[in-house]
């Protein structure tokens, strides 16, 4: 459960003060499928980064699973990112020198999982995302859809409770994007909280709850019935 109370995030651009998030409060229960939409500069990515503990609010409170995480040390926050949060990025962010399998393995290595377990879990993930015959290929040798599948496999390998996706289909064509979304939605169906940031209306409409942002504030926040 994600509980944000009166979160404000201020950026200084030269001598201009930008309120990327202005007194935002939102509560997302476990297992929800939420899309965050809005024009660029509306604060949707900043909100996602704060939920993912990559960014710190200037004021306000953030409780994750009932625990106040704003007050935690950097190392404790890193541990939460490791264990509870999975990121999917628009630009995939695969490590170019590592093979697909090694990229998927990376969170397990950082988490100190013993090599034997790692091997089993990576094999299972490769199978689940239909990447078995691409395991030893480097990102440069993969198609966009395959890359994003590797990235999703990497995001889920630690079995996080929350998946944060920032424009996951932004670099993919319509058809492949749809496939990637289906993969993410499968995760949601298995009980993971899924939060997707997008400015694509069609994509946003697939979520069960839509949050629309403008100028650092939540404009609307309503349930949605995907057709």
């Amino acid at each position: 459960m994600i509980d944000l109370t009166a979160i404000t995030r201020i950026f200084h651009m030269g001598d201009q003060v930008v309120r990327a998030l202005d007194d935002v409060s939102v509560r997302i229960s476990s297992g929800e499928y939420v899309s965050i939409m809005g024009p660029s500069g509306s604060g949707k990515s900043t909100l996602l980064n704060i939920i993912g503990l990559l960014d710190k609010p200037n004021s306000g409170n953030y409780a994750l699973d009932g625990k106040n995480v704003t007050a935690l040390s950097e190392n404790e926050q890193a541990q939460i990112r490791r264990e509870k949060i999975g990121f999917v990025f628009q630009t995939f962010h695969l490590v170019p020198r590592l093979t697909a399998a090694e990229n998927i393995e990376l969170p397990l290595i950082l988490g100190g999982i013993p090599p034997k377990d790692r091997c089993l879990r990576v094999d299972a993930a490769l199978l689940a995302f239909e990447l078995q015959d691409r395991a030893q290929h480097r990102p440069a040798e993969l198609s966009g859809g395959q890359r994003q599948r590797v990235a999703i496999a990497r995001a889920t390998i630690m079995q996080p409770t929350v998946i944060l996706a920032d424009e996951p289909t932004g670099n993919l064509d319509h058809h492949i994007g749809g496939e990637v979304m289906s993969l993410l939605e499968k995760l949601y169906e298995s009980g993971t909280t899924l939060i997707v940031v997008t400015h694509d209306r069609e994509l946003g409409a697939r979520a069960h709850r839509q949050i629309i942002m403008r100028d650092g504030k939540i404009l609307t926040d309503q349930a949605n019935d995907p057709a």
């Binding site: 993912g52 990559l54 950097e74 190392n75 890193a78 541990q79 939460i80 990112r81 490791r82 264990e83 990121f87 630009t91 962010h93 490590v95 990376l106 969170p107 950082l110 988490g111 990497r154």
Partner: peptide, 13 residues
């Protein structure tokens, strides 16, 4: 970018 990724994946500073 890789350093950002490692941080996101939970690597400490």
């Amino acid at each position: 970018a890789e350093i950002g990724l490692l941080t996101a994946l939970g690597a400490t500073r």
